[in-house]
Design a protein around this nucleic acid. Structure first.
Length: 521
RNA sequence: GGGCGACUAGCUCAAUGGUAGAGCAGCAGACUCUUAAUCUGGUGGUUCGGGGUUCGAGCCCCCGGUCGCCCA
């Protein structure tokens, strides 16, 4: 019976040991250059190497990385070495490579494989065919790989393998690796923008006795020593606002939140949220912060380019609308802004400024909407249902929908001039929600009333209704400055900026169902 | 939750209901300039799991599993 590749590789580990070579050495490997730096070095004026020429200065170069390809041509072996910056070819000639210290030619030929990590010392050269290479004098094995490495040409295609074993995806698919590099840059740019704008980054509890700040079902866990059930947070909002009550005028938190809901291409049970709160501001001010953060993040990927492509759709991030005459104090250039009533009217011709509840329900159902009993309780619920299910998906270019019904916004401040509405916005791009924000409700008595209304909804069967939070009301009672806050779904933003269709490919290790044995149902 | 589709060698994929295959990787060998190296030879399978129909099932039917896409 023949051996699998994994068995052969494991056997090579033992062979190396028996030949005095440790496959997993402890010592650090000091490289002199990354592969990218090697390329830069030999592209400097006067340093270029002609084909077939070795560096006349004989500068010693030490690089390390992973073997991604190995081509044995008799007494000469070519290896592609990849590190986090680039790749470089190693040229290993039998007569030039030292076996001690280091690994001998025959051992390189027989015992090293694609996927292994090695360090190489040698001098720069360019092969007869023009490939910049390192003429290796000493090769050191740094770590042996004992299962097959992803195919050099095809990589790993199966989406399930890519997500369950992201390390294979990252190691074998450069576009995946680059996507996560971009994610890191995007997150970093958000952080640096906010810090530069005077916001403090703080950390609030993940384990909470009362969850809140969003309409969602929580994960429940148990604390043994205290013998209490705790919830994983569904949002960071309430604690951040308590920090504002305590005197932090500008705060933000970038962190994981958890929602116990289905998995699809835009929902992962744990995802990264950004929430930002700014004292003495209103929802127009914080709307501008949303634009700034997204544009700053976009610049980390695209530079000055404002036209980006997402799944074949051109998205224009240029801010070109002026609302200073329509809304007092709302200066500058912005993305499109529409009230929810306007957006619904534009798309469906229904004017919720004049509709009565009964007529609104009839009109909504005529448009094909199946309204639940909860949706039929008031005009605000019907308006929101029509918007959410018929209008939101039509908003392709960046659009802020402002002025939401109070019924669906228990934490937002009542509108300064429109009864029944709150000063709230959501940002839509390509039919998907990217951000939510509002002037924060800071009247503790009103907040209690809103929570009580939510409790009534919960009793009426809405399991996503907001629970009562006495600690939060007490914080508001101590006094919270007028302020505005916003949240951005960071994963969705990364999807937009990296043109990625599924949230599971911007979350490095997405939630996957454990594999069960299908023979025992 | 519903519908549609996928699952075959380590990887990427073939295979009218009739002997399970190819390329790459791996293995043995050749080769001093390759780069998806090349050449020669051989190895490699619980066709996702279970059941059924059939003379015969990777393929048809049923149950289950995982994943993907769409819908709610």
């Amino acid at each position: 019976m023949t051996q699998s590749e994994a068995e052969v590789r494991s056997q090579k580990v033992e062979q190396l040991r028996s030949q005095g070579i440790e496959p997993y050495p402890s010592e650090s490997y000091q490289r002199s250059h990354t592969t990218q730096q090697v390329r830069e070095l030999f592209s400097q004026p006067g340093k270029e190497l002609n084909n077939g020429v070795t560096d006349p200065e004989e500068l010693s170069i030490r690089v390390c990385g992973r073997i991604t390809s190995k081509r044995d041509s008799g007494s000469i072996i070519f290896i592609d070495l990849k590190d986090a910056t680039d790749r470089i070819q190693l040229k290993i000639e039998k007569k030039l490579v030292k076996g001690d210290p280091g690994i001998a030619f025959k051992q390189i030929e027989k015992l090293l494989d694609v996927g292994d990590f090695v360090g190489a010392e040698g001098i720069g050269c360019r092969t007869n065919r023009g490939e910049l290479s390192i003429q290796v004098r000493e090769l050191k094995l740094l770590s042996k790989a004992t299962i097959p490495f992803p195919d050099a040409y095809y990589g790993v295609n199966d989406p399930e393998t890519c997500r369950r074993h992201r390390e294979m995806d990252l190691a074998g698919n450069p576009e995946s690796f680059n996507r996560f590099v971009l994610r890191s840059r995007i997150v970093q740019s958000i952080r640096s923008y906010l810090c530069d704008a005077g916001f403090y980054e703080i950390e609030t509890p993940v384990l909470q006795a009362i969850y809140g700040g969003a309409a969602a079902r929580p994960f429940i866990t148990h604390h043994n020593a205290l013998d209490v059930d705790l919830y994983l947070r569904i949002a960071t909002e309430l604690f951040l606002k308590r920090a504002v009550c305590g005197g932090f005028e500008r705060v933000f938190e970038l962190g994981r939140v958890f929602r116990n809901e289905g998995v699809d291409s835009t929902h992962n049970p744990e995802f990264t949220s950004l929430e930002v709160y700014q004292s003495y501001a209103d929802y127009f001010d914080i709307l501008g912060v949303v634009e700034d953060v997204i544009c700053f993040a976009a610049a980390a990927v695209f530079g000055d380019k404002k036209q980006i492509e997402y799944q074949g759709q051109l998205i224009n991030l240029d801010r070109q609308y002026d609302y200073s005459e329509k809304y007092a104090g709302f200066s500058g250039k912005h993305w499109q802004v529409k009230t929810m009533v306007e957006a619904v009217k534009d798309e469906t011709k229904l004017d919720f400024d004049v509709l009565e509840l009964g007529d609104a329900i009839a009109a909504a159902e005529k448009l094909g909407l199946h309204l639940a009993n909860l949706d039929k309780q008031s005009l605000g619920y019907v308006l929101y249902a029509v918007f959410d299910r018929l209008v939101a998906s039509t908003l392709i270019q960046p659009t802020f929908i402002i002025d939401f019904p109070v019924e669906v916004s228990p934490l937002a401040k009542g509108h300064r001039s429109k009864p029944g509405f709150v000063e709230r916005f959501e940002l839509f791009i390509n039919g998907t929600e990217y951000s939510n924000g509002f002037s924060e409700l800071n009247d503790p008595k009103e907040q209690r009333k809103r929570f009580e209304e939510q409790l009534a909804q919960k009793n009426a069967g809405d399991d996503e209704a907001h629970p009562m939070d006495e600690d939060f009301i007490e914080a508001l009672s101590l006094g919270m400055p007028n302020c505005a806050g916003m949240g951005i779904g960071v994963d969705r933003l990364v999807m937009l900026l990296t043109n990625t269709q599924s949230i599971r490919d911007v979350v490095m290790f997405p939630t996957m169902r454990p594999i069960k044995d299908g023979s025992n149902p």
